[in-house]
Design a binder for these strands. Structure first.
Lengths: 273, 273
DNA sequence: TTTGCGCGTGAACATCCTGTGACCGAGCCC
DNA sequence: GGGCTCGGTCACAGGATGTTCACGCGCAAA
C-alpha cells in the first residue's frame, strides 16, 4: 500500500474541494490560429497548458499528470482510433476531448464509445471548448480524488490522504484537519510555496495582508513533525519567500541508520521540559 | 423481536444506485418523433427510461434517483437557466445533458458553466446522443466505490446487504433502512468519508449547508452498535473531516485476556532511548 | 557590524464542530 | 382514530480547533 515515492514528485497536489486547483491540460493539435486563441484564453484562466505538436506516448502522458487532453484526430492519421482507445483505457483519470474537423455520426459515436469524454467539431469557439473541458474535468474530479490519492512516505513520515492523517510507522501524528491539508499541499508541491499560495489553496480564498495564520500552522506542524521524527527536518523556510517541504536528516545525527522514531503522542508538555 | 422488517423496501431506496449496468434516465422533451426514436434505442439498450413532458421539481427528480437527465431548454422557457442551475447544484451525482435546438455560443457556454455535462444540438442522431449520455454517466460513476453486496464481518458485527440488516451473532441490530445504508456505505469505504459524501450517496442529492442529519444517524448507529457490541467501537470521528469505519476493541475492558490487537501508540519508550 | 523587517513562539481569545436529547410530522398497522 | 416507527430538525453544551496578538530572535541588505 504505502508507496514510497522517495523525495521528488511534480506538482499535482490538488487539495480537494476547497480550492479547485488549476487544470493541467495538454493540446495535441497543429492549427496555429486555433492554438494561439486557445492559449490566450487558457493563460488568462490560469491553466497549466501544454501544446503538443506530435502524439506523446502513454508514459509521457502519465508523467505530465494531466487533468485533460484535447486531441485533433486529424493529426493522428489512421492510427488515431487505437491511440485514442489506449489513452482512454490507460489514463481513466484524465479527461479526453476530441476536437477535430467535420466528422460523421459514426465517427463521433466511435470516439465516444472508445472512451472520449466529449467531441467538439472544428471550427469551434475557444470559449466553448474550454467550457467542455471544464465540464469534463469537473465530472472527473468528483470520483478521482479519493481513489487515486496514494499514500506517500517522506523520510520517516507517511502521509495518508485516505485517513486525512500522517504517521510515523503506526503512530498517528494527530494532525488536525487544517494541519494535514497544509502538510499534504506542501508534500505535493516539490517547490517553494509562497504563503499566499498556501493560504489560497487551503483556505479557499485570498489571504488578508499581514495574516500570520500560515506561519502559525507551519509552527504547529513542525512541532508535531519534530515530536514524531526528531532527527529529521521537513519544512524549510525560505526567507522572504515561503515554505518548502523536503525531508532532510539533521546533521547532528551522524549515520545512525537504525534510529527508532522515538515515542510520540507525548507532543505536549513533558517532552519539552 | 429480532425479526428484521425485511419484507420490502421502498423501490429506489437501496437497489437502484447499486446497479451500475443499467442507466436510469429521464428525458424532458416534447418532440414526439425524437422521443419515439430515442425510446426505441434506449429500450433496446436496457435503460430505465422515463419520458417527461413537463419540468419536474427537485423533489421529484430526487425520488427518481436518476443517473442522467436529458432536457430540452426550449420547453422550459425563460426560467430554464434557473432550473438547470438548481438541478445541477442539487443533484451533482446526476449527469445533465442539454439537448435542444439551435443555440448561440454564449448560450452553450452558459449552460455548461451552470453545470451541464454536455450540450447536444438538435436535430441529432439518437445514437450520438446516447453515446454522449453514456460518456457523461461513465465519468460520473468513476470513483464511486463498489458497495460490496456480500456478507462481511467486522469485529463482532456482521453486515448482510441481502437482508438489509446487521447482526451480532444471530441477533439483529434492528437498524432502520437509513441506518443500515450509512453503515453499509461506511464499511465499504476503507477511508474517511466526509459528511457530504455520505449524504450524497445515501440520500441521493447534495447536502444542504448545515444539515446535521448525518451526525444524528451516526449517533443512532453508534448507539445500536454499542448496545450490540459494547466492547468495540466502530465509527470514528475525524474532526473537521468526517467519519471512518474501523472495528477496534475498546482498551478499557481489561476483563478478557484475549489477544489485544495491539493498536498503535504502544511503542516501548525504552526502544527510543 | 548595524539595522529593519521577516519569522518563530507562546498564549489568550473567538469560533466552529460535534454529541446529544428532545421534539415534530408523515406514514403504517391495528 | 390511536399507537407506533421512522426520518428529519432544532437548540444546547462542551470541547476541539482556528485566529489574533505581542514579544523577541534571526536573517539579509547596507
Amino acid at each position: 500500500m504505502s508507496i514510497d515515492r522517495s523525495v521528488t514528485l511534480p506538482d499535482a497536489a490538488g487539495s480537494a474541494q476547497r480550492a479547485p486547483s488549476r487544470i493541467r491540460l495538454a493540446v495535441l493539435d497543429r492549427d496555429p490560429g486555433f492554438m494561439q486563441v486557445l492559449a490566450k484564453r487558457l493563460d488568462s484562466l490560469g491553466c497549466e497548458y501544454r501544446p503538443l505538436a506530435a502524439p506523446v506516448g502513454l508514459e509521457g502522458l502519465v508523467t505530465m499528470r494531466l487533468n485533460a487532453l484535447v486531441v485533433d484526430l486529424a493529426i493522428l492519421g489512421p492510427s488515431g482510433w487505437g491511440y485514442l482507445e489506449q489513452v482512454c483505457a490507460r489514463l481513466p483519470g484524465m479527461a479526453v476531448i476530441v476536437c477535430t474537423g467535420p466528422s460523421s455520426v459514426a465517427q463521433r459515436v466511435r470516439g465516444l464509445r472508445l472512451g472520449a469524454d466529449a467531441w467538439v467539431t472544428k471550427p469551434c469557439h475557444a470559449e466553448e471548448l474550454i467550457c467542455v473541458i471544464e465540464a469534463a474535468v469537473r465530472r472527473h474530479r468528483r470520483g478521482e480524488m479519493p481513489t487515486l490519492e496514494a499514500t506517500a512516505t517522506f523520510g520517516e513520515i507517511t502521509v495518508r490522504p485516505d485517513l486525512h492523517q500522517a504517521y510515523v510507522g503506526p503512530t498517528s501524528l494527530e494532525l488536525t484537519a487544517r494541519e494535514f491539508e497544509i502538510l499534504h499541499l506542501l508534500t505535493g508541491a516539490d517547490r517553494v510555496l509562497r504563503r499566499e499560495e498556501i493560504y489560497e489553496r487551503v483556505w479557499g480564498y485570498a489571504m488578508a495582508h499581514g495574516d500570520r495564520s500560515v506561519d502559525v500552522f507551519v509552527r504547529k506542524l513542525r512541532q508535531k513533525l519534530r515530536a514524531g521524527s526528531p532527527q529529521w527536518s521537513y519544512i524549510h523556510t525560505h526567507f522572504g519567500v515561503g515554505y518548502r517541504f523536503a525531508p532532510e536528516r539533521e546533521v547532528d545525527a551522524p549515520e545512525l541508520d537504525l534510529v527508532e522514531p522515538a515515542p510520540l503522542h507525548m507532543l505536549d508538555p513533558a517532552l519539552a521540559g
